[in-house]
């Protein structure tokens, strides 16, 4: 328990009876990997997730070769062949008063497999392209959010005093902040303009803006529970002992605080992904984020709202995609959490 290197390497592996989690210094990552490889749930869910990512990356191939459409062009006057006969994608209603135009429904064939949206574009192709944007935005903003929330939560909980006061004020302000006002304002400010920050160029369709906004919006939601956890940990014997012994705060944070907080972060991660994908759809509706004709699962969902009564598939498809992705992330996350937490291994 001193600071000398030899003593540290001589420490025994994490003692499960120690009553708190400490990451072992000997090959922790190897242990994690072994744990994951050994769990069928983790392997299957990881494989499926990778499959989803690959599918979205193959979107251009699908659009060109399978569906034969350009999912970013309005297909308002497009026609496809069904049973050899040309069928318009936007179908004029012919019964009754003959009002209304309905996009074609799912054909379950290569072209317009899931039907067309309100502009005659292939939903399946857009779903794949949209996955790229959604996963990127949701993934990046989740990582950003967890990172910032961890830093803020731990700092506020551990350091206390004025730091806690300022950070807590900041957290409250972010949580009560009128994000939609900012979004509307940004969308108007950025019409037709682009700003350059070093290597980044931010124009109205840039994904950096929604990633930043979504990443910040949920920081309080994660930071406050973490702060609460840290406050409780402050009173635990190990932290108090470590402090009493004068161990560097950095060390305490790394060996005692962070491991305990990491499980909270891991549990939050898939839920945040889901919330972020949905938040992205609201932001895109307000014209911040993915701009037409680009797609994201959120924008397809919004498109589907106006077709809910006639073509529910347009909103079901992205909804299911989001659900499946989130479910898989959760299953994987559960195993990961178990593996990272040596104590819980006993309970299995």
């Amino acid at each position: 328990m001193g600071a000398s290197p030899e003593q540290e390497t001589a420490l025994p592996p994490a003692d499960p009876s120690a009553g708190e989690k400490v990451w072992s210094r000997r090959g922790p990552w190897r242990r994690v990997l072994q744990g994951l490889l050994g769990s069928p749930t983790a392997m299957i869910s990881a494989a499926l997730l990778v499959l989803i990512v690959i599918a979205t990356l193959l979107a251009p191939v699908y659009a060109k070769h399978v569906a034969g459409t350009d999912p970013f062009r309005s297909g308002l006057s497009a026609k496809i062949k069904i049973d050899g006969k040309p069928v318009p994608v936007m179908q004029q209603s012919t019964e009754g008063l003959g009002l209304g135009v309905t996009p074609i429904g799912p054909t379950w064939g290569p072209q317009y497999m899931l039907g067309a949206d309100g502009q005659g574009r292939d939903v399946a192709a857009r779903l794949l392209y949209g996955g790229q944007n959604s996963l990127l935005i949701a993934g990046a903003s989740t990582v950003l959010c967890l990172l910032i929330a961890a830093i803020v939560g731990i700092a506020a909980g551990y350091l206390g005093g004025a730091v806690d006061g300022v950070l807590s004020n900041l957290i409250d302000m972010i949580w009560a902040f009128p994000v939609y006002l900012l979004a509307i304002s940004l969308s108007i400010v950025m019409i037709g303009k682009s700003y350059a920050f070093g290597p980044f160029e931010i124009s109205s369709g840039s994904l950096i803006v929604p990633i930043l906004i979504i990443g910040l919006v949920y920081v309080p939601y994660v930071a406050r529970p973490i702060r609460g956890r840290v406050l409780a940990l402050n009173q635990s014997e190990f932290v108090m002992a470590a402090r009493g012994l004068g161990i560097r705060p950095g060390r305490i944070l790394w060996r005692h605080i962070l491991p305990n907080v990491s499980t909270t972060l891991i549990v939050f991660a898939p839920m945040l992904m889901a919330l972020n994908i949905v938040t992205e759809s609201s932001l895109s509706f307000l014209s911040v984020g993915v701009q037409p004709p680009n797609a994201s699962w959120g924008t397809i969902l919004q498109d589907g709202q106006t077709l809910l009564y006639s073509r529910p598939m347009v909103s079901l498809a992205p909804g299911l995609a989001i659900m499946v992705t989130v479910l898989l992330l959760n299953l994987f996350g559960d195993v990961l959490r178990d593996v990272l937490d040596p104590k819980s291994a006993r309970g299995r």
Binding site: G96, L97, L99, G100, L307, Y309, S310
Partner: peptide
């Protein structure tokens, strides 16, 4: 809303 028009054309044309 446009997604109701086709349905209403057939089910309730006398209300349009």
């Amino acid at each position: 809303p446009s997604d109701r028009l086709a349905e209403l054309s057939v089910s309730n044309p006398d209300q349009l």
